[in-house]
Write a protein that binds this DNA or RNA. Structure first.
Length: 558
RNA sequence: UGGGGCGUAGCCAAGCGGUAAGGCAACGGGUUUUGAUCCCGUGAUUCGCAGGUUCGAUCCCUGCCGCCCCAGCCA
């Protein structure tokens, strides 16, 4: 793990920040994380969050959380609340009050009028369709709107009446007067204000006109004294407009925009549009479904915030677009959990094992390490008795030599308990194995043979008489495609079995009392945490991630 | 055919004219009361391609090729 838990140590943006500081271009670093509250945060946002908060922390500056709430038709208080909860959970040092673009609606309105007064903006009566037609195409220049040369006084009067609600939604817009022939389409008289009669989560009904992103963003940056306005590559084309507005308005700060590539990850989608579709069409249980790449989904699944930050820190900021292997995130999750998780035993697909030479009714208590990685974690007591549950996968008839687990006549270690040898396999009428009979070697108490003989396999187990039952939910990737976003219809690449629910799993007694938010390791299986659906009467565990399984991988290769 | 970007191992990348870091993945081997963890080892005569400048180029220049973004009153 790198020293810097918020982001990479070096990249072209930090280089720039450093030189701006050294050359006196700026005195203080001020960044911002500017989500639009129209969805939940996902792992891609974490990249931007760690970048912005990380840079502020590294250079002794500050970073604002600012909601880009300029389009009430898509935005909602639910998202504002969720975003703040996620940001808090991520623990990136956000400790200030959230800011809102809407805090500045009055100032923005005044600046729009200033543009009109300077002859740099005008009210256009063209319809949306006409505006598009007049805009031209990628290869042909646009044409000036017939309303482009209105008198300043008329523009001012019209714009005031727009605000006063004298006109229908969509009937008029305010546009910047730049250049309809510009190669950059963003400069072909971009719309600055539109009429939308939709109540705003913050300002309610006080406005019926709202500034566009282009008009609000840079100016809000200036108001907040942002020194480095960091955004993703698709805004590169907007930078000339960002600069034009800053240059043509009496702002007191000179923010600069820098663009970096957004995060893409294999086997998932990271666009708000697609994630929203998954939620709205019910393909997942909600934004916090543990299969979702959302921050709330990862959290519910048991992924530590530290693992998310570590993942981002290994990414590195650049301008080339690529897709990060999901295995990178998985590695960070395992790495983080391996160091901190308590070890426990749980049997997911139980098979009864009866130890014939073990006294009926006898119970022994074994001490088992809580975490072999960390001796200070201590030990816990695990009850053992004549009848235990083992994993069905840990028994195989006609097992090949490479199979180190149980088979008729073979001896294995029961973790922390004894060596047992399988003496009989009991099947039902259909031939399915329903029970194993074994003998144990009393000399191997503590799971070590005094004669020094070795066994290749160590099995986890749960005493049948002491087992706690639980439901366990296993998650695997939502998509079958490595790049579902590239599919014609990404919904069609959804896997049908990304959630597997196992009932009646057998857990060691300690697992009845796992704290909310704690992630434990079920030995040999993976990391698990309780789901919010869980209660003391009906335990429900989520598998955060499985342990690496080179044996399964080798088997799959055959 | 307009404008803006990007091209270094399977993936993410460092490199800023002096002779190719690191991480993930993969593959070997060792340790192991988790087939986990941990440890050790294995990769680019080459940086999209072709020219040019230079004693010397992944880094500079030119020309190609490939990929991404832009024609919302979304952000």
């Amino acid at each position: 793990m790198k020293e810097n838990i918020l982001g990479s140590v070096n990249d072209f943006i930090r280089d720039r920040v450093r030189s701006d500081l050294e050359e006196g271009e700026i005195n203080t670093v001020v960044t911002r994380f500017p989500p639009e509250p129209n969805g939940y945060l996902h792992i891609g946002h974490a990249k931007s969050i760690c970048l912005n908060f990380g840079i502020a922390a590294e250079f002794g500056g500050i970073c604002n959380l600012r909601f880009d709430d300029t389009n009430p038709v898509k935005e909602d208080q639910e998202f504002i609340d969720a975003i703040q909860a996620d940001l808090q959970w991520l623990s990136v040092g956000w400790d200030r009050q959230a800011k809102y673009a809407s805090d500045n609606f009055e100032q923005l309105f005044a600046w729009a009028k200033r543009l009109i007064e300077d002859g740099k903006a005008y009210v256009d009566d063209l319809t949306a369709v006409e505006i598009r037609e007049y805009r031209g195409t990628l290869t042909e220049p646009g044409r000036n709107s017939p309303y482009r040369d209105r008198e300043i006084e008329e523009n001012l009067a019209l714009f005031n009446r727009m605000r006063d609600g004298d006109f229908e939604d969509g009937s008029r817009v305010l546009r910047a007067k730049i250049d309809m022939a510009a190669g950059n389409i963003n400069l072909r008289d971009p719309v600055l204000y539109r009429i939308v009669r939709v109540p705003h989560p913050r300002t309610g009904d006080s406005w019926c006109i709202y500034p566009t992103y282009d008009f609000a963003h840079g100016q809000t940056d200036a108001i907040e004294g942002i020194s480095h306005s960091l955004c993703t590559l698709e805004f590169e084309d907007h930078r000339p407009l960002y600069d034009w507005l800053i240059d043509n308005l009496p702002v007191t700060a000179r923010p600069r925009q820098y663009e970096f590539s957004r995060l893409n990850m294999s086997y998932t989608v990271l666009s708000k549009r697609r994630l929203t579709q998954l939620v709205e069409e019910g393909h997942v249980s909600g934004w916090d479904d543990p299969r979702m790449p959302t921050i709330s989904g990862l959290r519910r699944r048991g992924v530590p915030a530290l693992a998310v930050r570590d993942f981002i820190s290994r990414l590195s900021i650049s301008k080339s677009e690529g897709t990060v292997d999901a295995a990178m995130l998985e590695h960070c999750i395992r790495d983080s959990l391996n160091q901190t998780s308590m070890r426990r035993m749980a049997v997911l697909r139980p098979l009864k094992l009866v130890i014939e030479n073990y006294p009926e009714g006898q119970v022994e208590e074994f001490q088992s390490a809580n975490n072999p990685q960390d001796e200070s974690a201590g030990t816990r007591v695990v009850p053992f008795s004549r009848e235990i549950w083992i994993e069905r996968d840990d028994f195989m008839e006609d097992a090949p030599k490479k199979f180190f687990r149980l088979s008729l006549g073979r001896e294995v270690r029961l973790r922390s308990a004894y060596f047992v040898t399988c003496t009989e396999v009991i099947k039902d009428a259909s031939g399915e194995v329903i029970e194993l009979r074994c003998t144990y070697d009393p000399e191997t108490r503590g799971a070590n043979a005094p004669d020094g003989r070795k066994v290749k396999g160590t099995l986890h187990w749960v005493s049948a008489a002491h087992a706690v039952e639980a439901e366990v939910r296993l998650y695997s990737p939502l998509f079958a495609d490595e790049n579902p976003g590239a599919a014609e219809n990404f919904i069609s690449t959804l896997r049908s079995n990304s959630l597997e629910v196992l009932k009646s799993c057998k857990l060691e007694p300690m697992l009845a009392e796992v704290a909310d938010g704690e992630v434990v390791q079920f030995e040999r299986l993976g990391y698990f945490c309780t789901d919010p659906d869980s209660s003391s009467r009906a335990l429900v565990f989520n598998r955060t991630i499985g342990l690496r399984d080179t044996f399964a991988k080798a088997m799959a290769k055959r």
